[in-house]
Amino acid sequence: MLEAEQQERFETWLAQYRAMFYKVMQAFAFNQADRDDLFQEICLQVWKSIPAFRGDAAASTWLYRIALNTAITWSQQSRKHNKGHDDIAQHSHHLTQTAPPTDERLAWLYEQIAGFHPVDRSLALLLLDGFSYRDMAHMLGISESNVGVKIHRIKKHLVAKAKNQPSWNSKTSK
């Protein structure tokens, strides 16, 4: 692949799938410095992986897979690195000016997702974005039946918790 072609594809995808990257960043990184770090890592992985893209899967599925796998690896490494100390220097840098979710229900949803184990977190994102069980299994390297079991648990958890939010239920019923 020519470098110009790689460059063009990278720019297009970064702009086109901005929302998807945002969701992964919000679900896996919980302060601005971490989101910057994760965003940078995802960009690097996407850039490096572009020549390997054969078009067998949709670009969105392929990019989601890269972003989630990068985020899972990053969160494991990040936890290891930050264990026991809070790097104040990190907090002075903000690569992205990320807007926090304005809808309180959306903020709550991110909070719930953040409480899941990294694989369940990835499944929750994919589920909410309407991916099929097959795609999810392929992206995360787990069986479809396993996806089914986990999704059932995630849905049950989210719905049960949401029902305990009386102000929203009145909003939804309007």
């Binding site: 903000h94 690569l95 992205t96 807007a99 809808d103 959306l106 909410l128 719905v159 949401a162």
Partner: peptide, 27 residues
Amino acid sequence: MEFEDLQVIWTDQDKTPLFAFDHDAMH
């Protein structure tokens, strides 16, 4: 509230601006 309602809330976020790159911070 059902799961489909949560999905609507989730999908609605795509309509709002999400993030901008901070050039100075990168520098």
